[in-house]
């Protein structure tokens, strides 16, 4: 597999010495062509900074990054010809209609809608009934689909999607990911960030990022397989009281609330019991979120 995005020891910090805020610390990643790569991390982890560097909108403080073999600092012109970037914030012209936006972004990128229509056809068909509508008046999911069309219409080699599903309803999210899967099959490199852990499993490979550092890079399956503990699930009427109880138990390594239940990891060789009325520990396979929490705790 050929490398599409190559990032080595990339760091970015903002502000002067005293108020320095570090967004990225020695990030290294390698993403291949035709790969759907997910960057998973909470808000403030440095995802947007990384995307903006790759989109040549931000200069890194140190380190090296290339997109399609072009350096993000030196060859930014070449990169701008080859990437499709969809910022986290909706950034199309709200006062232009759907088709005007599409045509505009095609033209300024030196392409035409017609020659690349095959690429966007599946997505565009969903928003076509509203093509005369102003972009600002579309629903959240529609807006994201239009933004994706505008990023795709130049037929980019690399697609950078910064939190494309944030603030979008569950059905639209699902649809959006189906679209990404199809695009990947066309051989495009798709680098996507998301704060939603459940979307991680839809990627070929993922990198978990926290506080500007990449905690782990792996396929979702391998990441789950490499979980070093046996994870148990438990629940009670009052999960909070149960959590309090578990924290006092000496056989519990750590525990936390996950959705409507609790996750528990016991000390090795310790007795796997919970001293709380009518609550039992049940073994579960860890999710990406569990892996993330474990990796965060390790630090």
């Amino acid at each position: 597999m050929q490398t599409a995005i190559f990032i080595q020891d990339l760091s970015k910090s903002y502000g002067k010495e005293k108020h320095r805020a570090t967004a990225l610390k020695n990030v290294s990643l390698e993403i291949g062509q035709g790969e759907l790569f997910g960057l998973i991390g909470p808000d403030g982890a440095g995802k947007t900074s990384l995307f903006r560097i790759l989109a040549t909108l931000l200069t890194p403080s140190s380190g090296k990054a290339t997109v399609e073999g072009f350096d993000v600092v030196k060859d930014y012109r070449e990169i701008r010809r080859r990437v499709g970037y969809m910022p986290g914030r909706f950034s199309l012209y709200c006062d232009l209609s759907v088709e005007e936006n599409l045509e505009f972004f095609a033209t300024v990128s030196g392409a035409t809608v017609r020659e690349n229509y095959d690429l966007i056809a599946d997505i565009y068909r969903q928003i076509e009934p509203f093509k005369k509508r102003r972009a600002g008046k579309l629903s959240g999911g529609m807006k994201q689909k239009l933004a994706l069309c505008c990023a795709l219409v130049r037929r980019p080699a690399v697609l950078l999607l910064d939190e494309p599903t944030t603030g979008v309803d569950a059905v639209s999210r699902r649809e959006f990911w189906d679209i990404l899967k199809n695009l990947k099959d066309e051989g495009m490199c798709i680098f996507v960030s998301t704060p939603y852990m459940d979307e991680a499993s839809l990627c070929d490979r993922i990198a978990l990022i926290q506080g500007g550092e990449v905690l782990s890079t792996n396929t979702p399956a391998n990441l789950v397989a490499s979980y070093p503990f046996t994870l148990y699930k438990t629940r009670a009427e009052n999960n909070y009281l149960l959590l309090e109880q578990l924290r006092t138990q000496s056989n519990v390594r750590f525990c936390y609330i996950s959705g409507e239940s609790l996750r528990v990891v016991f000390h090795e060789g310790a007795e796997r019991v919970i001293r709380y009325p009518s609550s039992e520990a049940e073994e579960v396979t860890p999710s990406i979120e569990d892996c993330f929490i474990q990796l965060m705790k390790k630090r």
């Binding site: 989109a55 010809r81 914030r89 950034s91 199309l92 012209y93 972004f105 300024v108 990128s109």
Partner: peptide
């Protein structure tokens, strides 16, 4: 302010 600049800037214009 609208954020459209971000999108304009990644174009080869």
């Amino acid at each position: 302010e609208m954020g459209t600049m971000e999108q304009m800037n990644v174009t080869p214009v």
